[in-house]
């Protein structure tokens, strides 16, 4: 859980930073997309390394979801009869939303790939014209609402996930408040980076 989560977290950080290229104009973003495909081209061919990365991410995701499903199944078996009176959350709220929040994120990832990667659900949907695709998306408010909800779910997921991974890996850092603060700071900055794009489109900063 912690190791696959860490891999996916690193990807999310890279993705959030890459998204900010949109503020440098269409050439910066579209050029970046093109550059990703030409990375190590002599060895892997055009877009080859990208497929390697996708395969690794997909494997991490499958293992992550499998581990989550196993934990959920064990939890159900460990408490065959539930409580009649369910108490309010005493521990961490984001921790209690990990499973259903994770399912929500999974659905979003499917939509997001169909929208941005394949362009199937994108109103512009021209491969290589990433800037125009993104702007066309966020000019529609239902897309912005769905995207914002998904990013906030991601924020909650990472807030608990980053800290929990440190705890599971027995980090001595977890013994201190610093780990909790680091996890919160990471999740807030990632949310801010992701959300800056749709709101820049909505307010007309990007057009």
């Amino acid at each position: 859980m912690a190791i696959t989560g860490a891999l996916l977290f690193l990807y999310v950080v890279a993705h959030a930073l890459a998204n900010l290229k949109i503020f440098f104009g269409p050439d910066a973003l579209d050029g970046y997309g093109h550059w990703l495909r030409t990375l190590a081209q002599p060895a892997f061919g055009y877009g080859g390394l990208l497929w390697v990365a996708r395969a690794v991410l997909l494997a991490a995701l499958v293992l992550h979801v499998t581990a989550a499903a196993q934990l959920a199944r064990r939890a159900r078996k460990a408490r065959p009869v539930g409580y009649a009176h369910r108490a309010t959350v005493q521990g961490s709220y984001p921790a209690r939303t990990m499973r259903w929040g994770g399912v929500l994120l999974l659905l979003f990832v499917v939509y997001h790939v169909l929208d941005i990667t394949t362009g199937t659900l994108n109103p512009h949907g021209v491969p290589g014209e990433d800037y125009r695709n993104v702007v066309a998306d966020f000019q529609r408010w239902p897309v912005v609402v769905a995207y914002t909800a998904a990013i906030l779910a991601l924020g909650l997921h990472l807030w608990h996930g980053v800290w929990s991974a440190l705890q599971s890996l027995g980090s001595t850092l977890a013994a201190r408040r610093a780990a909790r603060i680091a996890a919160l700071a990471a999740s807030v900055s990632i949310c801010a980076a992701f959300l800056s794009v749709p709101f820049a489109v909505l307010t007309g900063v990007l057009r």
Binding site: Q90, A95, L166
Partner: peptide, 26 residues
């Protein structure tokens, strides 16, 4: 069941044993 670090245990523990104990076990 498996631990997912929800922290409900520490909140309920009558002796206030901290969650960092689990990090040490891990």
């Amino acid at each position: 069941g498996g631990c997912t670090n929800t922290g409900e245990c520490t909140a309920a523990c009558p002796k206030g044993i901290p969650l960092t104990t689990i990090a040490r076990l891990n």
